[in-house]
Computed example of a mutant assay.
Amino acid sequence: MAARKVQVYLPEERVAQLETILAKHSRRFWRETVPGGQEKYTCVVQQRYTERLLDELESAFADEPDFTAHVELLQAVLPPVEENSETELLLAGDIKPPTALERFFIRDRLSTDEIYDDIEESLHISTSYLLTVTLSAIIAGLGMRSEQTAVVIGAMVIAPLLGPTMGMALAATVGNRQLGWQAFRTMVVGCVLAILAGWVLGLIVDIDPQVPELFNRTLVQPDDVALALACGAAGVLAFSRGVSSALVGVMIAVALVPPLAASGLYLGAGYPAEGADALFLFAVNLVCVNIAGIATFLFQGLPPKSWRLTGSVLAMWALLLLLLVSMMAGSLLLDIGELKLALP
C-alpha cells in the first residue's frame, strides 16, 4: 500500500486551483478532457499524503456541485513510489510538518475516507446482518455448551459486530454524530438479536451451567479488561491497514459475541444471575474496546473535527469503565468476604 491513484473531476475554470493543490501532494499528475465540460486529473499519491490531499480537496471544492474525487489502491507503480524520508515532498507554508510520532503512525494507515468507506458498508441493518448475528450467536452458544473451542472460534470469525464496534470508535474519534448514531443503532439491534438467539437456544437444549467454556463468560477478572483493551487496539490497527476482516473479527469477536450468546443461553435455561454476569462481561468488553479503539485512532493521526466532542466521548467511556471496574472490585471483595465466613 505504498501509493494511491486519485482521480479528480472539475469544471475547466477550477483547474488552476486544482493543479496548485496537486503539486503540493503528488509527484505525478496528468490531465484529460472528458464529456460534460469537465476536466479529469489523475495523480499518483504516496500513502502518507493521501489524507492531507483529500482534506484540502474537500476544503477547496466542497461547494462545487460537479466536483468528484475517486481513490484507488495501486498494487504496483513504475518507476516505484518509495515511502522514505528521501522522497518527502517539500511542504508549502500552509501545511504543518508532521512530527516524528505522527509520521511513524500514519505512514501505512488508510486515509480516513477509506476507513469510513470500509466501515460504512457494515452499518446497515440488512437481512444478511440479522442472519449473520443470529447464526454467530447460535454457533457460539452450541460451542460453549459442548466445550468445543473450535466451534466458538467459528463464531468469532463470522464477526457480525465488527463493523458497528469500529464504527462507534471511528465516529467518536472524528466527531461524526450521524455515523455514531448509525453504528450504535446497528450494535444495539445486533446485541438484542444475539441475546434472543441464545435465549431460544437455552429453551430448547439442556445446559450444564458449570461447563468451563460457558461458565468463564460469567467471570469478570482484571485480565478480561486487559484482553478487551488489547482486542480494541489490535482491531483498529489491523482495520486501518486493510487487513482481512476475518483476522480482525477474531480479535474483536472474542470479546463481544460469546458473552452475549452465553447471557441468552443462561437466561433461556433459567439461570438469570449467570445471564446477568455474562452481560456484565460484555459491557466491560464493549467499553474497553471503544476506549482502546478511540485512543488507537488518535495515535494514528485521525483528525478530530472537535477535540471537545472527542474528549467528552472518551471521558464518558472512561467513567463507565471506572464504574464497571468498581462494581467488579466490589463483587470480588464480597466473594472473598463470603469465603472467609465459610471457613471454619
Rank of each mutant, 00 (worst) to 15 (best):
M1I: 03
A3H: 06
K5T: 06
P11Q: 12
E12S: 14
T20W: 12
I21R: 03
L22P: 01
L22I: 07
A23W: 14
S26T: 12
R28I: 13
R28N: 12
R31V: 04
T33L: 15
T33G: 15
G36H: 07
Q38E: 14
Q38R: 10
Q38M: 11
E39A: 14
E39S: 10
V44P: 03
Q46V: 09
R52G: 01
L53I: 03
S59L: 11
S59P: 01
S59Q: 13
E64H: 04
N84F: 07
S85F: 13
E86I: 15
T87R: 09
T87Q: 15
L89I: 09
L90E: 15
G93T: 12
D94S: 13
I95V: 09
E102H: 08
D108K: 13
R109S: 08
L110S: 02
T112C: 11
I115D: 02
D117M: 13
D118G: 06
L123I: 12
L131K: 08
L135C: 14
S136R: 00
I153E: 04
G163H: 04
M168S: 07
L170W: 01
A183G: 06
T186W: 05
D206E: 12
L214T: 01
F215P: 00
L219A: 12
Q221V: 10
D223V: 15
G235M: 01
A238R: 00
V243M: 07
S245M: 13
I252M: 04
I252T: 00
V254A: 11
A255S: 13
A261D: 06
A262E: 05
G264K: 01
P272T: 09
P272E: 08
L279N: 02
L286G: 01
N290M: 09
N290Y: 02
N290S: 10
L298M: 15
S306H: 08
S306Q: 06
G311E: 05
S312Q: 05
S312A: 14
S326P: 07
G330T: 10
S331L: 09
D335T: 13
D335F: 11
E338W: 12
E338A: 08
L339T: 13
L343C: 06
